[in-house]
Amino acid sequence: MKKLLLIAILFVGSLFAQVEGDMEVPYISYQIKMGKGFNAVQANCLMCHSFGYILNQGPQSREFWHKKIEKMITHFKAPITKKDEKIVTDYLFKHYGNGKIK
């Protein structure tokens, strides 16, 4: 019953939401794998996008992840150091890789 009530309140809340005053996009706490390199991922990637953006690319090759990071540096001007570039690539391939180098 409590749960039902909560759902009802949420529903009413979203029904009457209007653009009056501030409109903020909610923050989602994504379940992301912990491990070596996570701190570098958090420091470099989260500036521009959520972990959802990473998780929803699907499992990818090492080359894919490396190219993504290169794109962030070259095209999106993310200030990622050479050292972090490797750490982040290793992390992404280990946890969100498809096992293939290329």
């Binding site: 949420l10 809340g13 979203s14 939401a17 209007q18 653009v19 409109m23 903020e24 996009v25 909610p26 923050y27 989602i28 996008h49 959520s50 959802g52 953006y53 929803n56």
Partner: peptide
């Protein structure tokens, strides 16, 4: 199970940027 502003709950890929 979470709705974004002015939206019903939808399939949610990312909050920032919202997808």
């Amino acid at each position: 199970d979470m709705a974004f502003p002015e939206k019903r709950p939808l399939i949610t890929y990312s909050d920032r940027p919202p997808l």
